[in-house]
Design a protein around this nucleic acid. Sequence first.
DNA 1: ATGAAAGCGCTAACAG
DNA 2: CTGTTAGCGCTTTCAT
Lengths: 341, 341
Amino acid sequence: MNIKEVAKKAGVSVATVSRVLNHPESVAPDTKQRILDVIQELEYTPNWFARGLNFNKTDTIGLLIPNILNPSYMEIAKGVEDVSHQKNYNTLLCNGENAIEKERKYVDILVKRRVDGIVLVSSLLESDDIENITKQGIPVVLIGENRGDIKGIPIVRIDCEGASYKAVRHLIDIGYKDIAIIYGSTPEKENKRKVDGYRQALAEEGITEREEYLQEAPNTIEGGYIAGKRLNDLKHRPRAIFTSSDILAFGAIDAMKDHGVKVPEEVAFVGFDNIRMSNLIEPKLTTVEKPMHKMGVVGARLLFDIIDTKGEDITNREILLQSKLKIRKSCGHKERIGEIF
Amino acid sequence: MNIKEVAKKAGVSVATVSRVLNHPESVAPDTKQRILDVIQELEYTPNWFARGLNFNKTDTIGLLIPNILNPSYMEIAKGVEDVSHQKNYNTLLCNGENAIEKERKYVDILVKRRVDGIVLVSSLLESDDIENITKQGIPVVLIGENRGDIKGIPIVRIDCEGASYKAVRHLIDIGYKDIAIIYGSTPEKENKRKVDGYRQALAEEGITEREEYLQEAPNTIEGGYIAGKRLNDLKHRPRAIFTSSDILAFGAIDAMKDHGVKVPEEVAFVGFDNIRMSNLIEPKLTTVEKPMHKMGVVGARLLFDIIDTKGEDITNREILLQSKLKIRKSCGHKERIGEIF
DNA sequence: ATGAAAGCGCTAACAG
DNA sequence: CTGTTAGCGCTTTCAT
């Protein structure tokens, strides 16, 4: 079914049919109605490719996330999708799987498909890769920090370093000194910042850092388990552990329990993200609340701003969202159950 | 950058350039090389729309799931994506949000975009909706049962009824009689089957059903919490609860704990799905292991079979996958920690 | 082995 | 207000 058949059946030219689809106001009411009827009758829908060939626009955005099975990324994805769906856009969700080649491949596909914009979540891409995208006129927005240094690419993020500092500070305030950190290998830069925040809190208190208290691990439950076990096997087991994500904490807590270590009585925990599950495990996890859904929403809005205005005045925008420390049970704090900034 | 410029620069006709891209063997080695060089130099990539206009093929499949935040659906999605990515296909992930209008809208978009096939996960669509898709020549595969009765649409699923029967049977074997069920409002049909399995197990034992032990709830953690609370408020609280999904169990267990009820000492639990988190909560959840990733993989393979063979001999295929009962702590079983069929 | 040209389905400028 | 027609970028006969 194509426009020609519709035109023939309605006794008009293809141009007129095209008009009722794209500029309905410029067509006489009765001809318009007649054509509309035929369209309905023939169940005609314009060919997607032909349209694209003319408009060079897809009403689609690409969304690249590091791991589709990680709930915190999915919450961001949900935020993006909410906005894009509401704008009648489609979202092409790509699962980078923490592998730069896979990310590159996906970006390639997205570019080839002429998506109208791309949202990159904590990606591994280098600045060159990103430049390649924008050079083709496709706007990019970052959610969470990227590996490469990016100049002039809008980004929405939180203050990882500050948030981590406060989290560790809280642990110190309670009275712990032997504090370890488990940080994910990805996303690289953000986790580096989290380590920095951790260090800063320790340094401020004159606590000397122990090499073996810095544990890197894949950012998965399993990764957390292994790192937790390593920490437990240490001659001098830490009294408290800060993790760069909740799922790492889940794994590490599980490891402790498996080895008969009591949480938080023997080892206290503070996580990062506040995913939905974090107050369901035992003990409920004290964690940094990262506004993931909101980050997705804000990121998508930013992207659409650029798309809609063709990126006129939006240069080098950086949006910093707030995160709070959510104090629950796992940190072993006696009284202050609640939230602080 | 388009094919014309490449042709000009290489001193050949556009036809020849097109040939090296689509039928390289039909071009003289040296001309081919020359053209390849120019392509590289000019960073030429064929226009996706123009290609589509000719081939009417997108190398894209659509995947519609009920809820992007539900880990069990994401595991299925991962399975589908794994296969499709490996086949160099793209996956358009759509979040139906348990709303039939949103599902319809998405399917509409997918059809308009001429995706090469669609995977529907436990969708709300009626058989008419699905017929509308297949009528347009787009193959459809179902993962998990649909709302409508579908004839001749390939499906991969598990035996919900049998699995639930065994789960409840296990509860009975341990010695419980007052057994309740919390079942999600979606996916409708599968949960109906789970209720059937539950009923059958009770009936077999001559246990009379109590109306108030059948609790329907939204298939979310929150839904589980509310249903759990309702069950706890009952004059005669059940001694054991079977839930149609793990996340419902998570919510209900949380509710019990909040009200000072001990799990499994006072109320035992058996879930359904065996998502990764289910052995991290306290107590570790006894649950029906549903092979979600595998369902995704098998479903996608099935779809590609149809796409590749143009659906010649694949009629009315139904693939039934096995699920096991995974016995952990939450059911309160003393000895048999492990797996049974 | 290569080129010329038709055509995929649609949009928009130009004429009337 | 509507029709004619020239593209959009590519693939593929049909010649040569």
